[in-house]
Nucleic acid binder design. Structure first.
Lengths: 199, 199
DNA sequence: TCTCAACTTGAGGAGGGCCTCAACTTATGC
DNA sequence: GCATAAGTTGAGGCCCTCCTCAAGTTGAGA
C-alpha cells in the first residue's frame, strides 16, 4: 500500500471514529469523507462497504472486551467480577454512540472466544451464589439492549444516568432478588437472530 | 367534512394503523397512501404532517393507559397494581411496533392526567413497602426504554421474551432487592428532554 | 338539475444518501 | 529523471422520500 493511501486511511478512520462516536453508526459516508478532507471516491477505495469501515474503526474493541473479561475473571469475588465486566462494557457503550449501536446490533460478543469468557463469568457468579440461577447468557442481551436504549436517550441530556439504570438492573440479577420468571430464555440462535435483524 | 373525505380518512387510518403496527412509525407516507388505495395528495389533505396522522392513529391509547392506571389503583395490593400497570403498558408496546416507537419518544405519558396517575401508582407502591424507596417516577423511563428495546429486537424472532426482561427488571424494583444507587435520578425536565430528542 | 366548494389526483421538483467511473495526479522502483 | 502502477477526484446516475399544486372530479345544497 502506498504511503499516501495509508495516510488517507488514517484520516478516514480518525474522522469516522469521531463522527460515529457522537452521532452513531448511520452518519452519511459523504460526511465522513468531507470531514477527513478526502473525496468520497477515496473512501470507497479504502473501504468498499460501510461494514468494512465500521469494522476497522472498532477493531480494537474486541480485544478491550476480552481483556475486561479476563480481568473480571481474575477478581476474587465472582459477583464483583460480573458487575465489573458488565459495567465496563456499558462504559464503552456510553462513551461512543457508534459502539452503542454496534453492541445492540450484536457484533459486541461476536467472537467465540468472547462468548466463552462471558459464559464463564456468568457461571462463576452463579456458583458463588450471588447471581440468580435462572438466568442464562442470552439474558445478558436484555441488560445490553436496555442500557443501550437509555444511553441513546440520555446521551446529550443526562450522560451518566445509565449507571442508575444499570444499578437497578443488576439488583434484579442478584440471587436474593429472584422471583420465578414467566418465560423461557432465548435460545442462542434466537439471540443471534435478534441481534442481526435490528438495523 | 364531505362523506367521501371522511371515508378516505378512515381508509388512511386503517392502513396507517396496520403498517405502523408491524413496521414502526417510520413507514413511508406514500406506502400508507398506496395501501389505503388513495393518492398521496389525499393523505396530505387529511393529515398535513406525519405527526397528525400518528396522533390520530394512536388517539385511543391515552384513554387506554388512563384506564389501565385506574384499574391498577383499584387493586388492593399496591405492588400488584404497579406490576399490572407496567405490564399493561408493555403489552401495548409489544402488540404494536408503532406504539413501541411512540412510547420511547415519550408521548406515552404525555398528558398531565396520566402523569399524575402514574405518580400515585408509584407512591402507593412505595408506601406499601413493596417498591423500593429510592426510585422516582422518572426511573420508570428505564423500564419503558429497556423493554421497548427488547421488544424491537425480538419482535419477529422471539415475541414474548420481553416478559422475561420485564420480570427481571421488576425484581430489581422490589424494596427487598434495593442496594444503593450510584447516581441521582433524572429531573422531570431531563426525562422530558430525553424522550423528545430520540427520533 | 345545476353549481360550486370541497375533494382527489399524480406528475414532478427538491433534497439526501449511495455508489461508479473516466480523467487526472503522484509515489515508487529502476 | 522516467515509466507506470497505484491512488485520487468529483460530477453524475440511481433511488428513495417528502411535499406541492394545477387540473380534473364529485357530493350536496338550492
Amino acid at each position: 500500500m502506498r504511503k499516501d493511501a495509508l495516510h488517507n486511511r488514517e484520516l478516514l478512520l480518525r474522522a469516522a471514529r469521531s463522527l460515529f462516536a457522537d452521532r452513531g453508526l448511520d452518519v452519511p459516508l459523504e460526511e465522513i469523507a468531507r470531514t477527513a478532507g478526502v473525496s468520497i471516491g477515496t473512501l470507497y477505495n479504502r473501504f468498499p462497504t460501510r461494514a468494512e469501515l465500521v469494522e476497522a474503526v472498532f477493531e480494537d474493541r474486541v480485544a478491550t472486551v476480552a481483556e475486561l473479561a479476563e480481568r473480571s475473571l481474575a477478581m476474587d469475588d465472582a459477583w464483583k467480577g460480573l458487575v465489573a465486566f458488565i459495567t465496563g462494557v456499558c462504559e464503552l457503550q456510553a462513551a461512543d454512540l457508534g459502539y452503542n449501536d454496534l453492541a445492540v446490533r450484536g457484533a459486541a460478543a461476536d467472537t467465540a472466544a468472547g462468548y466463552a469468557l462471558m459464559r464463564r463469568i456468568i457461571e462463576r457468579a452463579q456458583e458463588s451464589g450471588a447471581l440468580r440461577d435462572d438466568v442464562t447468557l442470552e439474558d445478558m442481551a436484555f441488560v445490553i439492549w436496555g442500557v443501550a436504549a437509555t444511553v441513546r436517550a440520555t446521551f446529550r441530556v443526562a450522560p451518566g444516568v445509565w449507571r442508575r439504570h444499570l444499578a437497578l438492573t443488576l439488583d434484579g440479577l442478584r440471587a436474593t432478588a429472584a422471583h420465578p420468571l414467566p418465560t423461557p430464555p432465548m435460545t442462542p440462535s434466537q439471540a443471534r437472530a435478534a441481534m442481526n435483524d435490528c438495523p
